[in-house]
Design a binder for these strands. Structure first.
Lengths: 215, 215
DNA sequence: GCAAAAGTGTTAGGAGTACACCCATGC
DNA sequence: GCATGGGTGTACTCCTAACACTTTTGC
């Protein structure tokens, strides 16, 4: 079977990730500067067009790698964006995801085949982006705030475990509000997501705190 | 700009709806029998390939109309299905939705350009379907159970208002469990989704019950 | 008067939120 | 000994869930 009806031609799928980090108390998103049309020299989210022989998340991994050099990032589905004119080139449906990495532990490629720059932007300082990427980030932040309360997305920050005060600090940066220390402990420990170890360390204070790990 | 890389060719988007009804206490889903390849003579969900000049929900409405004669159905997004081999013809991404109608108030076209039959199936008696539609229904049922607790999807059953016992019966059919009458009242009335009227009527019992409407 | 369904109130447990004091450590 | 942050318990509210009796009506 061959598709000949012009109504079905020239359609494609974008797979797009809003990649976040938390840096010195600020939630930031990774943007790359496009080298090619459309939107040449605009900042944009990482992602691109899916190949017809790869699964969605595999295509997203490939695009992230091609545009940043990052590998093996865990992502969560966020939302679908499908307005018919969202791409000026042809009909593209965007399947969007969120991801989280510790910017201080990775190196982002700043010059690739497709990008001429890459930077972390505070989420309230994001410039005007290619396509509908500003709108995608807005929804991605909502997804992120939901997901960190339900999943172990934040484990990327703590490969060796974490103290509750330092985990709380990350939560506060993402949710953009202060949390009560006692209530935070109760909630997190009740969630059955983390487990205590025998070790202790100091974070910002002078007193040692117990180290926990994600299960 | 023209797309010439073969990796981007032959991609398309399916928009698919799991259309539900509740009939005599049973949750049912609408299936149509396909007239054309692929999956000729298989049962399938309503939906089809999106045109490149229409928005997602507009394309879904058109497909539903073409295959059932139904118009103006409200739908909610459910999930994305994108495995690379989910269609034997070419690479198709499925954006799936749920909808609810009162089967007793509409006429479903049983013979269209693309379908040779249409029937309501109890959800535990759904046959083996075209594509990955069985999996899509499984997820759609989950989405449905979530959505009826948060939205007014069920208003299609009660254009003239409803008594709480009859609304409860629909909830019980969909959630597939009995609910406590007192707790159901408290919860629904607290949700600020419905409002009482001055009228009363009898449903299954002898005693009159107050009629409510969705806001 | 009785069967059938509608209507109603109380209690207990769990989750979220607000809030104040003591503890360990480094200087 | 004091400043800094870590650790803890209690009270209130809200939501959920369990549960029994009275009212209305048709027959």
């Amino acid at each position: 079977m061959e598709v000949t009806n012009p109504k079905y031609e020239h359609q494609g799928i974008h797979v797009i990730a809003s990649i976040f980090t938390v840096d010195k108390g600020d939630l930031k998103v990774l943007l790359v500067k496009r080298k090619n049309e459309p939107f040449k020299n605009s900042w944009a989210l990482t992602g691109g067009a899916l190949y017809n022989d790869e699964d969605l998340e595999a295509g997203l991994s490939r695009e992230i790698y091609e545009k940043t050099g990052l590998k093996n990032m865990e992502v969560k589905f966020s939302k679908v964006f499908g307005k018919k004119d969202r791409s000026p080139v042809m009909r593209m449906i965007a399947i969007t995801y969120i991801g989280m990495i510790d910017a201080s532990k990775v190196e982002i490629a700043k010059d690739t085949l497709k990008t001429s720059n890459a930077e972390w932007f505070k989420i309230d300082e994001v410039p005007s982006l290619a396509y509908d990427h500003n709108e995608i980030i807005t929804e991605a932040i909502k997804t992120l705030k939901d997901e960190i309360l339900k999943t172990d997305l934040l484990k990327v920050f703590f490969p060796k475990g974490f103290t509750l005060p330092e985990l709380q600090k990350i939560y506060e940066s993402i949710l953009d509000k202060k949390l009560d220390r006692r209530n935070f402990r109760k909630k997190i420990l009740n969630m059955d997501m983390i487990t205590a170890t025998e070790e202790e360390k100091t974070f910002e204070g002078k007193k040692k705190a117990k180290i926990y790990k994600f299960k």
